[in-house]
């Protein structure tokens, strides 16, 4: 349990910078792959940078109230915080970020910080579609998160620890030490949760573009939207980092990190591309029928 040294702040900022850029590029590349599968050319891989700059440049004179103003701040703070509370690279001294502050439980519950902020902001915006989007998102996430919680409990019992670094350490030494192989049930359950919470079809009814104009962030624009888009780049990567550390042996170098995150992200992309969109109760029933039983099996088998 290392205590806090001032040098960790620049290290953390460095990690943040790398992950931000990686996130922006990766999401654009994945978007392009999805387009190509659909026979379209797809967006240039630097598109996200353009959007970010555009939104930042736009000046906005309006707000819908205090919570609306704070919504994006909460959202991005959630994304950044999640990234920084989890050690990204195993073994490297500077890529431990602030993981000393808490363990796996902190990471699990910090995911809700961003969602809560987003929901409050969207609610304050006064747009019914925003509120509908939030209610759908929350309803769906209750069941989607469950397999992950069960899987986490399973591996915590398996490795007798909640500290992420120790879990990654236990998985070093070859492919077959990953939790994927030592505890496949937990990993499958976790992957159910991963697909469910990645906001990609078939579980993206929350911000479905056609049905309700992009769900909760309907009323957001300019700098607010910019913050949200940076979060849309960081947050998936941060979540994938957690899955990577827990189930796929963590990353000992930035190269391994890039490949594994991309591979995991592609899993949800592959599933998303070929599946139509679930309604919320269908996704809830899906998780209840498939996700939760696997999770239960996982915690019983360990």
């Amino acid at each position: 349990m290392s205590s806090f040294h001032w040098v960790q702040i620049p290290y953390a900022l460095l990690t943040l910078f790398i992950v931000l850029n990686y996130g922006l590029i990766m999401t654009a590349v994945v978007q392009k792959i999805a387009a190509r599968v659909g026979g379209r050319h797809g967006i240039p891989f630097w598109q996200n940078y353009i959007d970010l700059v555009k939104n930042f440049a736009q000046r906005s004179k309006i707000t819908h109230g205090v919570m609306f103003y704070l919504g994006p701040v909460f959202r991005l703070a959630g994304g950044v915080g999640l990234l920084l509370f989890v050690p990204t690279i195993y073994g490297s001294t500077w890529a431990q970020n602030f993981s000393f502050a808490g363990d796996l439980v902190l990471a699990l519950y910090f995911v809700f910080f961003g969602t809560l902020g987003m929901a409050l902001g969207a609610g304050e915006s006064g747009h019914p579609h925003a509120a509908i989007g939030v209610s759908r998102g929350l309803a769906q996430v209750t069941m989607a998160e469950l397999p992950l919680a069960l899987a986490v409990y399973a591996i915590a019992v398996q490795y007798h620890t909640l500290n992420i670094t120790e879990i990654v350490a236990a998985q070093q030494g070859g492919l077959f030490h990953w939790t994927l192989f030592t505890n496949p049930l937990a990993t499958v359950a976790a992957m159910f949760a991963f697909v469910g919470t990645m906001m990609r079809p078939p579980f993206d009814v929350v911000l479905a573009p056609q049905e309700i104009p992009i769900g909760p962030p309907t009323e957001y624009h300019s700098a607010y939207l910019a913050l949200m888009q940076t979060n849309r780049a960081i947050f998936p990567v941060a979540k994938t980092v957690i899955y990577m550390n827990l189930f796929f042996g963590g990353a000992s170098s930035w190269g391994e990190f890039a490949i594994k995150v991309f591979a995991l992200y592609m899993v949800s992309a592959f599933i998303g591309v070929v599946h139509p969109r679930f309604r919320v109760e269908q996704s809830i029933r899906f998780f209840m029928k498939w996700g939760v039983p696997v999770g239960v099996l996982a915690i019983l088998m360990v």
Binding site: F4, R59, V73, V80, A101, D103, F113, A226, L227
Partner: peptide
């Protein structure tokens, strides 16, 4: 099994929150 440092968590979150809040106010 794990550790919990409430002060560190509060400080980290508040720092991130305030910096981002600063950026937004600037804009």
């Amino acid at each position: 099994f794990g550790n919990w440092n409430p002060v560190a968590i509060m400080v980290v979150i508040v720092v991130i929150f305030v910096t981002l809040f600063g950026i937004l106010i600037a804009k």
